[in-house]
Design a protein around this nucleic acid. Structure first.
Lengths: 341, 341
DNA sequence: TCGCCGGGCGAGAGCGCTTTCGGATCCGCG
DNA sequence: CGCGGATCCGAAAGCGCTCTCGCCCGGCGA
């Protein structure tokens, strides 16, 4: 940019004039430049450079019917969304993928249950080409809203009810199976499970994996937590009271595992000698910081974010809400052996 | 919305036709309705309702030169931004205020130092009317970028170098003075300070407040931390080694205070009897959870976010980057007495 | 030499909206 | 009954861009 015209931003018209071509040709060059002979391409490029031309997005999307932006809808209460690294890493992945495709991220935070109207209006208003959302609870109204708005939407996490929306989720069930099988393989027979909140599919799927491997397990070996360290501690205490003879615990996330670990040690149980412990997520800041370091099931969270964005972008290229919806993706999990099992 | 026309969204033209008025009148009604007689207003309103009309934002901003969106630029590495409740609460405040003014929040996460070009291009591209940014480090290139882009920008936190950009910041210096004075008032004479990273103005300002009250204090009583609990613990240990006789600590945030508290108790110092402790932020999840609960300096973080948005919006109404820049705001802090001092 | 074909380019329409400007209408008053 | 002014409304321009359509021109075969 050799010159800067403050105030009056140059239009395509100005570029065309300076390059001595028509607006149409200038437009062709700006948008890829096919079908224009090299000398003209150079002239236009130079004019763009000299004038510091940047296309007006409003004018462009008025005719293309594309905004180059997607919404990320966050319905989760602030506390959970921001405190849980799970989301932040997913957002980071989304942001990276979108940035790579010159697509903008419009963040829609739902401000309470009365705010869905605004979200709905916004989506219908054509501000964005598509949406990404996190579906976490059984009674989540979001899938219905985005569908009614005719907006292609990819969800993070499997929705809790039968629906055809595309989503990206980790192989929670498979990962849980692997964790429990590992516990079996190291000779444990009385394996407990600290589940997450059972109105979320991530929790029920992990519980499902546990039951797949241990269909005959004592129901008393399963306690529901809330994905927090504190709830993990409580659950552990409860389990110890119910079944003092347990020799292994599979917790549905690392935070709860860390809480459980604390209680186990307070009660004088050696980990992993007396009780083996496996977490889920591989939230490194937690899993590597425990003493001993936590054996856990890793899910590639940032990659899942990228995938969500990629799925959406691809779906958009194939006709948006009218075209065939993208297929959902289940990302693999992997058991990371550290010291607790 | 009694009917829904999927696929073809109704235009203002359609509304006008249905209401039996001109496009101009329909537009007037949609945008406030002044200067149109009630019966016509009603007719148009009804047509809007029946057709489910929603204005096309692209067309609108093409002529008004306003996009109804502002950028929130996050340059901070993911870890800090998402893990620190400070940001999340600020974002929440921003989001609320923007939503109340029908303005959208475009989140720009800076993906590494090479990504500033994209940010700059985006801002210059006229996608947004203004920007909010968090200025945290001395060498932050953001103020220069937004200025060059001719984009009105309000910063969260006082920039670390002399510049005229508008910002919103807590009264860090005053809050620190109050904390230290309180420590004096309860009879403490050897007051240490655990500072934050000194390339951030929040840290230097708090240190400044400490020195305002204690200009003659032993330099050995000040240790730099990193705003994490861990660093607070280290700093506390260091302080104890240097000055075993200290009888009070003012930590530059609650997280460091909680780390310090842990070390104090490990070393057998009673809090507050032997050593009084004051934090900063009033991050309730931390400050109320410590044992004993932490005395700290509260800043109204969410309110600061709202203020940032309000300042920007007002500045935008007054001519944007061309008009007079909004005046910066320093929000008051208040000492919250709990049990540690 | 002529006609035809095809690639390259420009003219112009049109995306959906806001806003100016002038005309119509209605009121009160002389 | 007619006039001035205020009020309300419609015609039309135009925001900056994309993209269709058709023209032009060069090259090639007949």
């Amino acid at each position: 940019m050799t010159e800067q015209y403050f105030g009056v931003r140059p239009t395509l018209e100005a570029v065309a004039a300076r390059a001595g071509v028509s607006r149409a040709t200038a437009s062709r060059v700006v948008n890829g430049g096919t079908g224009v002979r090299p000398p003209l391409v150079d002239k236009v490029r130079q004019a763009v450079e000299e004038l510091g031309y940047i296309p007006n997005q409003a004018a462009r999307s008025l005719v293309t019917r594309r905004t180059g932006a997607v919404a990320v809808i966050v319905a989760e209460p602030e506390t959970r969304f921001f405190s849980d690294p799970f989301f932040s890493r997913q957002i980071r992945g989304i942001s990276k993928e979108l940035a790579a495709h010159d697509t903008q991220l419009v963040l829609l935070l739902v401000e309470g249950p009365d705010d869905y109207g605004r979200i709905s209006r916004y989506l219908t208003g054509g501000h964005v080409d598509g949406a990404l959302a996190f579906s976490l609870h059984d009674e989540d109204p979001l899938p219905a809203i985005t569908r009614d708005a005719g907006m292609l939407t990819v969800f993070g996490g499997r929705p809790g009810f039968p629906t055809a929306v595309p989503y990206v989720d980790a192989d929670n069930r498979g990962g849980a199976r692997e964790a429990v099988r590992h516990l079996l393989s190291i000779g444990r027979g009385r394996i407990a499970h600290i589940a997450g909140p059972l109105d979320q599919t991530a929790s029920t799927d992990r519980l499902g994996g546990y039951r797949d491997v241990l269909p005959e397990a004592d129901p008393a070996l399963v306690v529901e937590g809330a994905f927090t360290a504190e709830s993990g501690a409580h659950a552990m205490a409860e389990l110890l009271a119910r079944r003092p003879d347990l020799d292994a615990v599979f917790a549905a996330n690392d935070l709860m595992a860390s809480g459980a670990l604390r209680v186990l040690r307070e009660r004088g149980r050696r980990v992993p000698e007396d009780v083996a412990l496996v977490g889920f997520d591989d939230m490194t800041s937690v899993a590597e910081a425990t003493d001993p370091p936590l054996t856990t099931v890793r899910q590639e969270v940032e990659e899942m974010g990228r995938l969500m964005a990629r799925l959406l972008l691809r779906g958009l290229d194939q006709g948006g809400a009218e075209g065939p919806p993208p297929a959902s993706v289940i990302t693999p999990t992997v058991l990371v052996r550290r010291a607790t099992a």
